[in-house]
Design a protein around this nucleic acid. Structure first.
Lengths: 238, 238
DNA sequence: GAGTGGTCTAGACCACAAC
DNA sequence: TTGTGGTCTAGACCACTCC
């Protein structure tokens, strides 16, 4: 049995995307929705809060839930999730080149980034992403070997996240990402087609499982012209 | 009367920040919290969901709410909000130079960015941000004059957002931001101390009020070495 | 005044973790 | 088996918008 509020959320998303309420540009009231879905108001409100979080609606007290027309505002694809998803959404020809796949020992730097002890084993994966024939992204992933016992060339060339979530059943829960712009390293110059660009965009992330253990550290280095990040922020209420 | 769940949220934040539960690194159970705060479980859960959203805790089913020790992971300041807030947090000497403050008519480009009609009046504000004596940020703001009837030199040199929220009582509700890296324009070179940097980080944002009206478009152009953005993302459950 | 969303309650049943 | 968080209910009162 699927969670009721998620079912309702998905149904509403679908209806919004096909412009089911185009004239009013409003959702039915919460009370009407309880009748439509034969459920309680709190359940409806859970679904609506999800819609608001994802930017589908904006709730206005005393009035109702206003549908935010994404096309009207010409919003582009939102937040990067994984390379595969990104290229899939944009319909790009993409290719992954595996440069290094090895078990290494944690050095000083990695102990602090992965919060593990010195000399503990870590998977290092170094991949270059080629889009439309140009090498534009360099991904350096480090996985705590405790959580990822085995990795193969095939897995790395497809999607590591598919493997982690569907095969190993790891529950990735949250991530902290840091965006900066840096000078290219010698490695960047060697592995990427930088074409005279004198900077790279660097995204450093720490990824956590749902039991709050830190299992991955990644540096993703992008050629600046191929980089775009979209953020949808709700104002914090205080 | 303050909302109860917000009061509880703020109290828990304070307790987490002073390491009130340092030994267990867990919050009391939801049931215990209902007794401590003399309230219902759903209200406690609202407060806990806020804590989770903000990255203070991670809830684990069957176990409890694990406190995420920010210091342990050496997390830096999170998401940019406004220039004033940013410099305040980092304890930097900051200065704002107003270059242009004028009412202009919407041209083709601005009609699409602010979703208003051609020739409608718009406030244009162009400011340079100086940090520790270096001009590193160029902010170009465009406000729909319908929502912001008056603007002065003083307001622009202090904080426009203070004025909008506290004086005009506008409720800023959500924003869509787009991050890219671009070549500097002639204007960037003239107004900023670029010092040989051959790129700028550009943040384009559309800002909405709580009745979903689009009232501001901004381009914030940063010298790349002074730019950093931090994102804390929870994985979407599907 | 009628209708809307925002908060809060007290209770129920379930799924999962630990023992 | 016990304790935890996850979902769901039916009802209450409030604050706000619109007429």
């Amino acid at each position: 049995m699927q969670k009721k509020y998620l079912t309702i959320y998905q149904d509403l998303v679908k209806k919004i995307e096909v412009n089911h309420w185009a004239e009013s540009s409003m959702l039915p009231s919460e009370y009407e929705l309880t009748e439509m879905y034969a459920t309680s108001r709190e359940t409806i409100r859970k679904a609506l809060n999800l819609l608001a979080q994802d930017g589908y609606i904006q709730k206005v007290r005393g009035k109702g839930s206003v549908i935010i027309d994404v096309n009207k505002f010409d919003f582009p694809v939102s937040g990067i999730v994984s390379f595969k998803e990104l290229t899939g959404k944009l319909n790009l020809k993409a290719n992954t080149i595996l440069h290094e796949l090895a078990i290494i020992e944690a050095d000083q730097d990695l102990t602090s980034k992965l919060k593990i002890r010195l000399h503990e084993p870590i998977w290092k994966v170094c991949r270059v992403r080629e889009i439309s024939g140009e090498k534009v992204i360099l991904d350096k992933d480090y996985f705590n070997k405790k959580f990822v016992p085995a990795l193969t060339k095939e897995i790395c060339e497809d999607s590591i996240y598919n493997y982690l979530e569907n095969e190993l059943k790891l529950n990735i829960s949250f991530a902290r990402k840091e965006f900066t712009v840096e000078d290219p390293t010698r490695e960047d110059r060697q592995l990427l087609d930088l074409e005279g660009y004198s900077n790279v965009v660097v995204i450093k992330s720490m990824v956590f499982l749902d039991d709050t253990s830190l299992f991955q550290y990644t540096e993703s280095r992008h050629r600046p012209d191929k980089f775009k990040f979209v953020d949808f922020a709700r104002r914090v209420k205080s």
